[in-house]
Amino acid sequence: MPVRRGHVAPQNTFLDTIIRKFEGQSRKFIIANARVENCAVIYCNDGFCELCGYSRAEVMQRPCTCDFLHGPRTQRRAAAQIAQALLGAEERKVEIAFYRKDGSCFLCLVDVVPVKNEDGAVIMFILNFEVVMEKDMVGSPAHDTNHRGPPTSWLAPGRAKTFRLKLPALLALTARESSVRSGGAGGAGAPGAVVVDVDLTPAAPSSESLALDEVTAMDNHVAGLGPAEERRALVGPGSPPRSAPGQLPSPRAHSLNPDASGSSCSLARTRSRESCASVRRASSADDIEAMRAGVLPPPPRHASTGAMHPLRSGLLNSTSDSDLVRYRTISKIPQITLNFVDLKGDPFLASPTSDREIIAPKIKERTHNVTEKVTQVLSLGADVLPEYKLQAPRIHRWTILHYSPFKAVWDWLILLLVIYTAVFTPYSAAFLLKETEEGPPATECGYACQPLAVVDLIVDIMFIVDILINFRTTYVNANEEVVSHPGRIAVHYFKGWFLIDMVAAIPFDLLI
Score class of each variant (00 low, 15 high):
G306T: 05
S379L: 07
R312F: 05
S266H: 10
E289V: 12
R77Y: 12
I363Y: 15
S182H: 12
S313T: 14
A193F: 05
V377R: 03
Q84E: 15
G224M: 05
E37M: 09
V59C: 04
S320N: 03
K373N: 01
E95F: 05
P151A: 13
F14E: 12
V325D: 14
H143S: 09
D355C: 15
P300Q: 03
I30F: 01
A203T: 04
D111Y: 06
C64A: 15
K373E: 06
M60F: 08
F14G: 07
S55N: 06
Q25S: 10
V196G: 01
F129S: 01
C276K: 07
C52Q: 01
I363A: 09
V279S: 14
C66V: 14
A253S: 11
C108E: 01
T319V: 07
A382R: 13
P352S: 10
D197N: 08
S255T: 09
L69T: 01
L324T: 12
K373I: 10
P258S: 13
P297F: 14
S26P: 07
L248W: 15
A85D: 01
N128C: 09
P227D: 15
P2F: 06
Y99K: 01
A350W: 06
V132L: 06
I19N: 01
Q61P: 01
I358L: 07
A89E: 14
R159H: 08
I30A: 01
V138H: 13
V41T: 08
K135G: 10
V131K: 08
F98K: 01
P249Y: 06
V36W: 06
D144N: 15
L296V: 15
A260D: 15
S278Y: 09
H143W: 14
I363C: 07
D286H: 15
M308Q: 11
L385D: 04
G71R: 01
K21G: 06
Q75K: 10
G183F: 06
S261G: 11
D355I: 12
A382Y: 04
P10M: 15
V295Y: 15
A79F: 03
G184S: 06
D102N: 09
G294N: 15
S379I: 03
F98Q: 01
E58G: 01
P241D: 11
R35T: 09
V138W: 05
D199N: 05
K161S: 06
P151W: 13
E58F: 06
E58V: 04
A223V: 08
E90S: 09
F106S: 01
D67A: 08
G184I: 14
P151L: 15
K21L: 06
P245N: 15
G6E: 13
R366I: 12
I363T: 09
A78C: 12
T145L: 09
V131Q: 15
L311N: 15
I363L: 07
F125G: 11
T17V: 14
G187V: 08
I336V: 14
F106M: 08
V198F: 06
L173S: 14
S331I: 01
S284Q: 05
V194T: 06
L324M: 14
A244Q: 14
V222G: 08
F163N: 14
I359A: 14
L256D: 06
T270H: 06
T319C: 05
L69N: 01
C49S: 13
H254N: 07
I42M: 07
N12Q: 15
R366S: 11
P240Y: 15
G149T: 08
G24Y: 07
T13S: 08
K373H: 01
V370I: 12
H368Y: 14
G186I: 06
R356W: 01
E357G: 05
D342K: 07
F68L: 01
S261L: 07
I288L: 09
G24W: 07
D287R: 04
A80K: 10
P241K: 07
V41P: 01
V36M: 15
L210T: 12
A175R: 15
Q75L: 07
G381S: 07
Q25M: 07
Y54M: 01
L338N: 11
L248E: 12
R281E: 14
A290V: 07
R4F: 15
C265H: 08
I18F: 06
H368K: 10
G314F: 08
F29R: 01
C66R: 01
L165F: 14
R301G: 14
R100N: 04
S179M: 06
K332V: 01
L200G: 15
A211I: 05
S26Q: 12
V180K: 10
P205A: 15
A57K: 12
P245V: 09
P347Y: 08
R292A: 14
